[in-house]
């Protein structure tokens, strides 16, 4: 009896270590994914920062002109010389353009704000507990983060059905969606479509991500969830995205299915229970 107790605790220890290793792997995959996206995100931010910065300098020169006019009010005697200044600074143009300049700059700053908050939402490290969450909002957040990977490769078509709040670790579900979206974009050679569908199925919710890419060949289809299996060129994929997605979905007591027709496209389907079975802490 007593010699059975030692391997038991050893096994627990091993399990705990395995669990920790898996968690670390998941975290590093997430960081690697963010690293791969960094160039795209930089592009998304550099564009608005570029024009907002330039607009500010234009604004400065407009204001210099306008102040030249208002300062002249005190020093000048005749209205005609004021009119001459007003004409020389192209007052009508400046007045019209100021509104556009401000509106466009505001739009740019909003975009930067959206990207930054999406990155923040996305990289939540501490949130490790199951909480009811809005899956569609999570998908929108993820789309903001990967927008630059998608917009030159595909038209994204949302077909969202009504969804109840889903008990899940939303940052992890977002990561699965991100992996599938990036894979979908990589599978498309020229320009295609990516459909994102959500619907309920009894007590479950279903998320479908379907692309019009090159599809997965029969012999690879069995291996896509294997760790380190990748068909992408070196540096493009870690081979961990789908295997970790599989782990995440499993941890949520859900399932992930795939339909693929080589040459036609691939559809990944994630099915998650809206409510986790009792004792969800056994993660």
């Amino acid at each position: 009896m007593s010699n059975a107790a030692i391997p038991q605790s050893e096994k627990e220890l091993m399990n705990a270590r395995l669990d920790q290793a898996r968690r670390q792997l998941m975290q590093s995959e997430k960081l690697a994914a963010i690293g791969q996206l960094a160039a795209g995100v930089a592009h998304e931010i550099n564009n608005p920062v570029g024009y907002v910065y330039s607009n500010l300098q234009s604004l400065e020169s407009y204001l210099t002109d306008l102040f030249r006019l208002t300062d002249a009010i005190d020093s000048t005697e005749s209205l005609d010389s004021l009119r001459a200044i007003k004409q020389s600074i192209d007052y009508e143009f400046v007045r019209d353009d100021l509104n556009d300049l401000l509106a466009e700059s505001r739009e740019g700053i909003e975009r930067v704000k959206t990207i930054i908050s999406a990155m923040k939402d996305f990289s939540h490290i501490e949130e490790e507990e199951f909480k009811p969450a809005d899956i569609q909002r999570g998908i929108e957040t993820t789309l903001n983060v990967v927008n630059n990977e998608l917009k030159y490769k595909a038209q994204v078509i949302r077909e969202f059905g009504e969804l109840p709040p889903v008990e899940c670790i939303i940052s992890q579900v977002n990561q699965v969606v991100m992996n599938l979206l990036v894979n979908a974009a990589h599978a498309i050679d020229e320009f295609g479509q990516i459909h994102i569908r959500t619907r309920t199925d009894g007590d479950n919710v279903v998320i479908e991500i379907e692309d019009t890419g090159q599809g997965i060949s029969e012999e690879n289809l069995n291996r896509i969830f294997e760790p380190f299996f990748t068909t992408k060129p070196i540096g493009k994929g870690t081979g961990l995205g789908l295997s970790l997605s599989f782990n995440i979905v499993e941890k949520h007591n859900g399932r992930i299915d795939v339909d693929s027709k080589p040459g036609k496209g691939t559809c990944f389907r994630i099915t998650l229970p809206a409510k986790q079975p009792q004792t969800p802490e056994a993660a």
Binding site: N47, P48, G50, Y51, V52, S54, N55, Q57, S58, S61, D97, D100, L101, E104, E107, G108
Partner: peptide, 16 residues
């Protein structure tokens, strides 16, 4: 492809 970039550049180049 970004219209706002184009208007910022237009503003910048107008005085030239």
């Amino acid at each position: 492809d970004e219209p706002n970039i184009l208007s910022a550049l237009r503003r910048l180049l107008k005085p030239q």
